[in-house]
């Protein structure tokens, strides 16, 4: 019986019996974290972009300025509320709130994606805003000086640089989300932590199950951070560049001229 087993034996016993449940839970956790971080990034980018739209008091029509003002206030409220409250409370608030007030019963996945995305979006909004502001203002001036509109300058020049700047923070958020989806067990999302609670509740093996779950979380976050570093490296490109043979370019130009 399990009470006679050693620590190691118990772990193997649990793995044998519930291994697939843990793996399923881990998969759920990973999917929620990945999808929600992605949606959160989109929310964050939209919000950051809107918040950095310049307003020209002389040139812009009143309606644009008023609309932008209202949207900005809404965004500020959203950011402050969802950064300033714990996600575990947000989960309960949204899940039961929607059920009670709007009569909407969310499924497990819907609830998980909604809560984590909204929460991540609030953090990403500030990161993106910071990322945009931190790009050298000369880049925007350079873009404007060749005739780009604000949108063109953002898409081609500013956002790619801002994205690179905040990539470490996106990675941070992903890793935080892998861990923090555990709070969703309060609204019965069957993630890794939910599996842990069920298993340890059934067998009274809290320590052993926690050890397994710790190991799984750590594996997921370590692999994630490793992959993110690789992505960053790839984005930066090499430090070397090849000089192009000037004669070659000359002959290319020559060919085109003679056509």
């Amino acid at each position: 019986m399990i009470s006679n087993m050693s620590f190691i034996e118990r772990i193997f016993y649990i793995l044998q019996k519930y291994g697939t449940s843990y793996l399923k839970g881990a998969g759920t956790t990973l999917v929620i974290a990945l999808v929600s971080t992605f949606i959160g990034c989109i929310i964050g980018f939209l919000s950051g972009i809107i918040q950095t739209i310049p307003v020209d008091k002389k040139r812009d029509p009143l309606i644009k300025r008023v609309l932008l003002g209202i949207v900005n206030v809404i965004l500020r409220i959203y950011i402050e509320v969802f950064r300033g409250t714990p996600m575990i409370v947000q989960a309960v608030f949204i899940y039961y709130g929607l059920a009670q007030v709007c009569n909407v019963q969310l499924g497990m996945w819907q609830a998980a994606f909604l809560v984590v995305s909204i929460n991540t979006g609030a953090y990403m909004a500030e990161s993106v805003r910071g990322g945009i502001i931190s790009v050298d203002p000369g880049q925007m001036e350079g873009a404007k000086a060749i005739g780009m509109t604000h949108v063109q300058a953002m898409v081609n020049v500013i956002l790619p640089q801002a994205f690179r700047n905040i990539l470490p923070q996106i990675g941070n958020n992903l890793i935080i989300n892998i861990k923090d989806t555990s709070v969703l067990s309060v609204i019965s999302v069957v993630d890794l932590f939910f599996v842990h609670k069920s298993v340890s509740g059934a067998l009274y093996t809290y320590f052993e199950s926690a050890t397994i779950v710790m190991a799984i979380y750590l594996t997921m976050t370590l692999i994630t951070s490793r992959l993110l570093r690789l992505w960053e490296k790839k984005m930066d490109g090499g430090d070397n560049y090849e000089l192009v043979d000037v004669m070659d370019i000359g002959s290319q130009l020559g060919k085109k001229e003679s056509r």
């Binding site: 050298d136 000369g138 880049q139 001036e141 000086a145 005739g147 081609n156």
Partner: peptide, 17 residues
């Protein structure tokens, strides 16, 4: 208008990306 009037800056402002 700006597309017709070029500008070269003291700090170059080449697009670093």
């Amino acid at each position: 208008y700006r597309a017709r009037v070029g500008m070269v800056f003291q700090s170059f402002n080449l697009f670093s990306n």
